[in-house]
Nucleic acid binder design. Structure first.
Lengths: 253, 253
DNA sequence: CATCGTAATTAGGTGAACCTAACTTTTGCA
DNA sequence: TGCAAAAGTTAGGTTCACCTAATTACGATG
């Protein structure tokens, strides 16, 4: 029960304000905040294949644009992003690596919570969002190992490997499937819990096979028919055009 | 994949600096920092049955005394402690409740990491120290349930229940046992990983029965003999006077 | 090609949680 | 009982990550 901490000259302890207070940060020296920015920039780059813009990042993180500008300067100083003033930002290799590491943390945690601890897929995101900044590499690896190193999280999103590789299986938006064809749902957006509860109730989840019955123009809603033999099989439902990504199938497996 | 966050008038978002940025804090509205202070104050009160002093808190948290003074003022404002200037601090019922909640988080996490994910008892403390501020009540309860609501953590410390009750089994320091008597180890301090590896290697852990062979005066080291039938049984070892708490036994169970 | 709207930045500010240096209160001891 | 050492507090400063208001750059359009 003896505390007896190290008697460093006190000038060398927590010293710098706010952020990560305890020395034992999980990954490198990145604060949760920085990890969130990198994740957002990564996601935006993925989405558009173009440099992420200040206002997109701001909207995504629910932060005012000037705050983003300031943080981008810091990230550029740390060599995590390239930033051309008034243009946009893109991740450096170091930044991408950090982003993928955080993404791995997030998705491993989601998978573990859902598989082992019985969390529903609409609640894992919020929980993972906080835990991903506190969990050590060791913990993440043990959770992943306990699941047999899963390839995807509960929403179907691929989990980057320990060495930072992300296997991207090409998918299309369900809305991009030809009307009348069947497709196997690959993934569903993970952030909107309400949406997840809704599509879950329709049995639209990764692995489900659905047929696109009709599609309204201009990104309008889709009408889907759930295939297979479940209780919900054969029912048709109307959903938004961006709910899920999918791969075409010939025979419903 | 549509982010589309709430378009509040922007004056109502993260607004206040540093601390907990996203609204979804796990417990109440307490930051990790505040929880750490309350835990420390609780531990010091337990230890001495007297109000905790500024410098004790400072030493325990490895923070300069003036920083503690400042934080104590904030904690008093929030009605979590009572603070008499130049005297000391004691927890209010609200503060004690918050401290016990954090203690529960910490110990449930330790127990889970050790039992389910195979962490060694000398590494769980550091991991729990970070996770306890990020885990939701839901997660803690599910982890506890997965273990059948354990009564103690891997170091033998009691785990407060969901409703904030802490069952205290009276124990004495091993050093306080009469020489020649046997005692069952109840708990070992959880913070010092190196110490834990050492006493672990001697098979001194909760449940182990040891005999106090001799004791040097003035809180000097103890000589112990490990009872039972393990590989280490019968060996004698010399350890510090504060390594473990124990209860006397007549027949080694 | 001037202008106007939007996006991005700079300027200046806040609160949290830390720090050191200087000062005050308490306490232990001659 | 008096006074010095120890403990605690105040004063003033830093960094971080946010904010609003004001300004500047860009790019589309008449």
């Amino acid at each position: 029960m003896t505390p007896r901490r190290d008697p460093r000259p006190a000038a060398e302890r927590g010293h710098s304000g706010g952020g990560a207070r305890h020395g034992g940060a999980p990954g490198g020296t990145l604060t949760g905040s920085i990890e969130d920015y990198l994740k957002a920039i990564y996601a935006l780059e993925e989405l558009t294949d173009l440099p992420a813009t200040t206002s997109d990042i701001a909207e995504r993180l629910d932060i005012a644009p000037p705050s983003v500008s300031g943080m981008l300067r810091r990230l550029a100083t740390r060599k995590l992003i390239r930033h051309e003033r008034y243009r946009g930002v893109s991740l450096t290799p170091a930044g991408r690596k950090a982003a993928l590491k955080t993404l791995r943390r997030h998705r491993v945690i989601e998978a573990y919570l859902a598989s082992v601890l019985g969390f529903s897929w609409d609640t894992v995101h919020a929980e993972a969002e906080r835990l991903e900044h506190a969990a050590s590499d060791e913990l993440i690896d043990r959770m992943a190992a306990a699941l047999g190193d899963p390839a995807t999280d509960p929403h179907g999103a691929p989990i980057p490997t320990r060495d930072g590789t992300l296997v991207i299986v090409p998918t299309q938006l369900l809305a991009e499937q030809a009307v009348g064809t069947s497709a196997r749902v690959a993934s569903v957006g993970d952030e909107d819990g309400e949406l997840l509860r809704y599509v879950g109730s329709l049995a639209i989840r990764p692995g489900a096979v659905v047929k696109v019955v009709s599609r309204a123009p201009f990104d309008g809603p889709l009408t889907l028919e759930v295939s297979g033999s479940g209780a919900k099989a054969g029912r048709t439902h109307v959903v938004g055009s961006t709910v899920a990504r999918a791969v075409k199938v010939d025979k419903p497996r």
